[in-house]
Design a protein around this nucleic acid. Structure first.
Lengths: 105, 105
DNA sequence: CAAACACATAAGCACGTGCTTATGTGTTTG
DNA sequence: CAAACACATAAGCACGTGCTTATGTGTTTG
């Protein structure tokens, strides 16, 4: 059940931060990801392993560096999950999303 | 941080099943939700409390029954979260979602 | 109004999770 | 090639989580 891995991976706020970094910036290696994050090297390594197993990120080994980037496969499962339920009450959700968007600004 | 409550609430497979029931069927009370679910009454009550605190469901007390239904507020946060990242690689995600949809059938 | 009912809550327990320190593995540098 | 580097992994620990049994609270039924 990979869906369960994905939801569990995203349940941790540190991992969501890492995912957000990789989603909004070019590929980074583990050390670069740590900058400005108050997290030890082993902790980062463990979080990256969880995200990798959930297919939310994927690695690209280059010598002694390991570069990470978002893996659309895992994210697609969440996107699909949202789409599945959105169809049940599209108007209510879209109205709410507009409200949330306004709040951001 | 309500976003964290929501992701943590959805990280449990039993709670996702409950949410799915409420999303795809009319409002139900706690006992009706239990039918066909091999879950004790206290366990169900505790799961419903977590979902309620995450604003994924809301309650409507009617005498000694408590009816539950999906609360668009919590779901909207997830939908918004997905939308936020989808914008970074729309073509890749949409292609993948089409693939996943095919796999369902 | 006493019993049954629908649900909530408390306490205890087994197991999961995220961190730490220590150390291992493979690669590059000087 | 020895040291430095980038990262992974192991073991241990504190704390979180989801269940159980027991019991509490409010409502309805006969």
């Amino acid at each position: 059940m990979i869906e369960n891995h994905i939801f569990k991976a995203l349940a941790d706020p540190t991992r969501r931060t890492i995912f957000e970094k990789l989603a909004t910036a070019p590929r980074m290696n583990a050390s670069t990801l740590r900058t400005g994050m108050e997290i030890s090297q082993p902790a980062m390594s463990q979080h990256l392993a969880v995200l990798r197993q959930a297919k939310l990120i994927r690695e690209d080994r280059q010598g002694r560096f390991v570069y990470y980037e978002v893996d659309p496969e895992g994210f697609g499962v969440i996107a699909q999950w949202v789409t599945k339920y959105r169809t049940y009450w599209p108007e209510r959700i879209d109205a709410l999303k507009a409200t949330l968007k306004d709040m951001d600004q």
